[in-house]
Design a protein around this nucleic acid. Structure first.
Lengths: 240, 240
DNA sequence: AATATAAGTGGTACTGTGCAACCTAACAAG
DNA sequence: CTTGTTAGGTTGCACAGTACCACTTATATT
């Protein structure tokens, strides 16, 4: 018999929270939503910019994702954006109030839908372009690192999914979608190869309408599935 | 001023745990390590098979990953396998003892290194082939779902990383590595294309030695980096 | 020495991408 | 009405990487 049997339940429990990296495209730039920490000096990191988020409310949130959706709704008024868990970070030191673990989600919302809610707790919320490294690298807690993880995930998945489509207000044209890819990837994309690749997966529906923007009209599309992205083919000797 | 200001700290905190899907290859099959829940009827899911894991010990684990490594060391005696976080699942109902959130990691260990530790708390640990769906689909808690997530991640990443190399005892031959891919992918892989793809990334070091296994000797390799996999190239119009 | 077998190499067909030229539908200027 | 301009959309060719298959090489066995 071991000298110290592990207790059935731990005496002390960590703080559990959710943090959100909410992305949108404004003025041809990728933006992330940040909120100011309360100015109250009794709170950690007063008045600094941070990712929106908060503690799990055991009596209110049924699941982790519920909590993330609740936060998202509170801040933006959006109730069904694309939402994906990035990962969890937990340590004894990341929050001065004690051992804590947070769960990072990223959300993609079309710029049109953005209606910033006048914070329930009077907190200031603002869109910041990712270009502003002075801001995004000096966030409260370890949020700069969390944001980096979210961006890294987004960058990686854009290469082989239709994620940027969730940033486009529907209906959208193909050049608009391409621009969305270019903004997220931060590099130019070949028009012809892009079209072939997009149409190789059948995740777009033609609306039949066109958008007249001065020159030749562009065909309008909408997503066939609002809840999940399309995946472009990988390659590892897939037997034909 | 809102009627209910959110409390600075939550009154009630969830249970926080880590669960591990530890994979290895035995007898040409992918296996996962499972442990039996204590027979004590006061515990949830007594005597059922479950993923190894446990609650965070706030006084002992500095980080989430520390906790995962500690569990891994306790069960297998391995202290530096490949370890990757899959994600977190939290809900009010997944543990009868209350709101809980668990963090799923998967680990890959070479079959040679496997030394099952006679459980510190006398719990029975055993390797189970993933073929045994009767077992892997009837685990305690939501562990069947957690295991599925881990397998799904593994399956996905094998397509574009060198992960199966972490399942091979070093040094290994190229055909052995190929077999490792085939076991994880559960399909045949083309020899010639495989070699070209592997050598296109420079993550293997030739030992200079060869393994004589009856027929023509095979060159032996070891990993250049033990801590991270190699990534095979993606494709999205990377401007040349 | 002949044979069997697994390791390793080379070559061709095919497919998807990169690139660039071209066609097309609208508007605007004269 | 004609012509030029511009952005959307299409076509075709060169190239690179893969699938497939045939071939060579090194060892053990008979």
């Amino acid at each position: 018999m071991p000298t110290t049997l592990p207790p059935a339940l731990p005496a002390e429990r960590p703080l559990v929270s959710v943090d959100l990296a909410i992305f949108t495209v404004r003025a041809d730039r990728l933006h992330v939503l940040l909120v100011r920490r309360p100015a109250d000096a009794s709170e950690p990191f007063p008045h600094q910019w941070a990712l929106p988020g908060g503690f799990i409310q055991v009596g209110r949130d049924q699941t982790l994702e519920d909590c993330a959706r609740r936060k998202l709704l509170e801040k933006t008024g959006i109730d069904s954006p694309y939402l994906e868990q990035v990962g969890a970070v937990g340590s004894a030191t990341r929050d001065p109030r004690g051992w804590s673990v947070t769960h990072v989600y990223f959300a993609l919302i079309p710029s049109d839908d953005v209606v910033l809610q006048p914070g329930a707790n009077a907190s200031e919320a603002q869109w910041h372009p990712l270009i502003e490294q002075a801001v995004t690298e000096s966030l409260a807690f370890d949020h700069a690192q969390l944001l980096s993880q979210a961006i890294e995930r987004l960058h990686a998945k854009v290469e082989y999914t239709s994620l940027p489509a969730f940033l486009c207000p529907e209906p959208f044209t193909l050049p608009e979608l391409q621009r969305s890819y270019e903004i997220v990837l931060d590099r130019a994309v070949e028009k012809s190869a892009f079209r072939k690749r997009i149409f190789a997966q059948a995740f777009l529906e033609e609306t039949g309408e066109t958008r007249i923007t001065g020159k030749r009209p562009a065909a309008l599309y909408r997503l066939r599935y609002r809840d999940r992205p399309a995946y472009f083919p990988r390659t590892f000797s897939p037997r034909s």
